[in-house]
Amino acid sequence: MSTDSRSVLSLRGLSYRYPDGTAALEDVSLDLREGERLALMGPNGAGKSTLLLHLNALLDGDGNLEVDGMALSKATVRTIRQKVGLVFQNPDDQLFCPTVFEDVAFGPRNMGLPDTEVERRVHGSLQAVGLDGFERRNPAHLSIGEKKRAAIATVHAMRPLVFVLDEPTGNLDARGRRGLLDLLLSLEGAQIIVTHDLELVRAVCSRVLVMGAGRIVTEGAVPDILADPAKLEVWGLA
C-alpha cells in the first residue's frame, strides 16, 4: 500500500455514550486509504460494532466523520451511506425481503436508479459474490454461507467506496470461510473488517487496529501486530 494514496474515510475523536450513560467509545480516530483493507480487532464488548454504526451515521456520537472528502452533515448523510456499505453481522437482519432479487435491488432503488439499471446491478452483484441464478430464491431458505454472500451483494449493488463488514466469516465452516476470503480479496473498494479470525486478517488485511474498552489500544501493520503471541493475549485476541 503506497502511503500517498488518497484518504477515503477519516474519523476524528469519536466518543459515544449509551443512553444509560455508559461510555462505549472514547476518542476513537481512524483513517482509511483508497483500496486499503483494515482489520478492526478486540475482545467482545470493546465497541467495534458500535464504531461501525457510526461510520454509517446510524449512531451520532461526538466526533468528525469525513468520507471521500465530504464531512458528515444532514445534507451529505445519504451520499455517505451510499459510499460506506455496511454489512451487518447477522444476515437475517440484512436480508429482509421475500426474494434475493428484492433484497439486492433495495439499495439501488432507494438511490433512485431506473429499473433497467437496478436489474443490471442486481445480476452483476449476485455474479460478483458467486450467487448467479439466486434471484427468485427466498433468503430465509439460503445456507448461512449463501446468506453472508447475499448480504455482501446487497451492499455491492450500491457501488460503495468502502465496505464495512462485521464478522464476515463468523459461523462459517472451513470451506465457506475460504470462499469468503476469496470474495473479500476480489471486491473492489476499501474495507474495514471487524473480526476475531486471525487467518482472515493475515490473508486479507494490511493493517490492524486493536480496540479495548471503547478505545484504540494499538495499531500497525499486520505482521507487526500478530507477531507477538504474548501481546495478542494481553489485547484479548488470542
Binding site: R78, R81, F88, D93, Q94, G112, V155, M158
Partner: peptide, 23 residues
C-alpha cells in the same frame, strides 16, 4: 430487537419511507 436491527439495515441502504420507486 431484531426489528431495530432490520430498520438500521434499511436506513444503511438509503431507505426513505416517502419514495415509491417502482413504475
Amino acid at each position: 430487537e431484531r426489528a431495530e436491527r432490520v430498520y438500521q439495515a434499511m436506513i444503511a441502504r438509503g431507505y426513505d419511507p416517502g419514495i415509491r420507486p417502482r413504475q
